[in-house]
Every structure is written in structure tokens, then in C-alpha cells.
Design a binder for these strands. Sequence first.
DNA 1: CGGCATCCAGGTTGATACTG
DNA 2: CAGTATCAACCTGGATGCCG
Lengths: 103, 103
Amino acid sequence: MNANYCPLDYTMNLIGTKWKPIVLFHLLEGAERSGVLQKKVPGISNKMFTQTVRELEKDGLISRKIYPVVPPKVEYALTARGKSLEAILKSLDQWGIEDKKAF
Amino acid sequence: MNANYCPLDYTMNLIGTKWKPIVLFHLLEGAERSGVLQKKVPGISNKMFTQTVRELEKDGLISRKIYPVVPPKVEYALTARGKSLEAILKSLDQWGIEDKKAF
DNA sequence: CGGCATCCAGGTTGATACTG
DNA sequence: CAGTATCAACCTGGATGCCG
């Protein structure tokens, strides 16, 4: 069964979903408030947004900071581990730009 | 709804699945015969393998060469478009290696 | 405002058996 | 050997409504 495991699989299990890369990508510019961040992700439902940031937090790729104010305020930011994905995220984005030109 | 589209999404729609990156990665080393290639992907079922290479072919990332012999022989190889993903695939793999060291 | 719980439709996946 | 067909099980994601 296990003929040729490759770490690529490990990476994809962390970020290889529909929404995770997009959320991470937008956080490259800096911390964002929850609602603002969500609006930057076209088409995501509230449920999927919550689910996505929860998993990213659990995996230590982003941090969640809660401000005890009214109305509630929550900010998300990349952790060091999350920032280490910067090159990959930008490559993915760049490839998309180049590929669209060619095809 | 559409606040901030990014090409990263476009890229992920092409390769952002469980099996596609792994298949592509193994093809970086050169063309492979179908059965051999499948054995290199741990845990994939025959059905998913076929489905995956079909989609990759449809998207022009790999080519499929059929040898009219008995028993049947089919080889898959990266197209130019597929090869252009090399840097990304290796980055993903490399990140997985580095990350495992750290965590 | 942030985000969780519930329901449920649709797509995805795996096991198995079969064709050329 | 390469690939397809079928079916059931599982998972995903969206809509809605409620809570702190």
C-alpha cells in the first residue's frame, strides 16, 4: 500500500482545500478583523469561513486574538508557521496569473 | 459577494485535490507506465487514479500515450503546462520536509 | 458582531465485479 | 494490464436560525 510517500501530501493536508489558501493569502498583508477577512473571500459562507479559520488555528498556521469589547472583535493573523508558506502562496498566485495569459 | 478574487484560486482548482499533486510530482521524474505510476501513489484506489489522470489530461497538464500492444500499455507524462508546475510542486514537497522537522 | 447548531442536498470516494 | 460500471457510504458545503 505504501510505496512512495512524499511530504507534498503532508503539505496538501494542511492547505489543500478550497478556502484555506485564499484565507492565508489575504492574511499575508497583515492581521485582519474577522468580518473584513471574510468579505475578502468571494463566495464563502459563514459556516465555511468559521470552519476554515478553526482548522487553520488548530494547525498553528494562524492565530486568533479576541478583544473583550462590545461589539465583539476578533482578529486573525499568520503565525510564524503560517508566514513560512508565503513563498508557496505567492507562487500559486503567480502561476495562476501566468497560466491565464498562456491559455 | 465578489470582493477580492485572486488567481491562487484558479491554480487550486487545477491541482488542489487529494491526489493530483502527488501524481504530478511523481511524473516530474519522467513518463511512467500507468500501473507503475499508480503504485507510487500510496492508498489511491483504481477508480480514483483513473479519474485523477483523466482530469489532469483534460486540463492539459499531462499527456496520455497508448501503445497498441498486448497486454495494453499506457504511459503518462507531463505536458509543457504540467512541467511549469515543477517549482510549485517541489516547494510544496520541500515545505513538508522542513515543517516536519520543526513540529 | 462573531460564530455555533441543525438540517439536508449533492458531490466524492471505495469496494467489487466486469470488459477489451 | 488498463480501464469502466455500479452502488452504498461518507463528506462537503449551503441555508437558516439562535446564542453570547
